[in-house]
Design a protein around this nucleic acid. Structure first.
Lengths: 120, 120
DNA sequence: CTGGATCCTCCAAGATACTG
DNA sequence: CAGTATCTTGGAGGATCCAG
């Protein structure tokens, strides 16, 4: 049974989620797929300089977690389309809360850092 | 100027925040300090097996970011108390959204993983 | 008690090249 | 086009000992 108190258990679900969100690309993939299914190359180009190996790793892990589906069309050249699952879509709101917080408080953080560094 | 669209800019504020939340201990420190100021050892004991060096690094970074204050009492033995700043306190809500999401959807994720692994 | 100093491990991430 | 194969690396995290 999972309770609110076990965030301090190393196997706590929140820790698992934060591991995912903490990686470099998962959140960006979610935000890209928000506007609809995308092909591998579309994701790569949109997200920026990400090595194909890394993007593949990210997408595979997201597929395993049930956040995206991977659809292969057996054509030449091959076409692979990634789509957010309902589970993946449900992550958009929590992510938005974070981005909103980040954008709201960035000035305060930057300012705090400047003050801290000045006294160093 | 910071806009919603620049999540794909490597210097995007959201990326910075996610880097923090993605580390192993910051979120746990926030949740501990939620119930009030704590001493170094109290934090260490409550959070679990964290090396003092690592906890110090975490706390220093949080102090630099303006999330906590560090108060040293020049006594023997020394006493150091960490307290959430208003900025740090404002992080509790976004974190709660994440923990709620995690706890709600953990079964779905676990199930998805099991299905994925079974077909491997 | 707090946490600095030192050394070590591990792995996400990246660069590059290649293939069905 | 959508990856895989291989090699490399930076830095978070950890273990241990020591000091004010």
């Amino acid at each position: 049974m999972v309770t609110k108190g076990d965030v301090f258990d190393p196997n706590c679900p929140t820790r698992v989620i934060l591991d995912r969100l903490g990686d470099k690309w998962t959140v960006l993939v979610v935000l890209r797929l928000r506007s609809g299914p995308q092909r591998f190359t579309e994701l790569r180009d949109a997200i920026g300089q990400v090595a194909p190996k890394v993007l593949t790793q990210t997408l595979r892990r997201m597929e395993r977690d049930g956040l995206v589906t991977r659809e292969v069309f057996p054509e030449i050249p091959p076409r692979v389309v990634y789509t957010l699952t309902p589970l993946g879509t449900s992550l958009i709101d929590p992510i938005s809360v974070l981005t909103d917080w980040a954008e709201t408080h960035l000035p305060a953080i930057t300012s705090a850092q400047a003050t801290y560094d000045a006294n160093a």
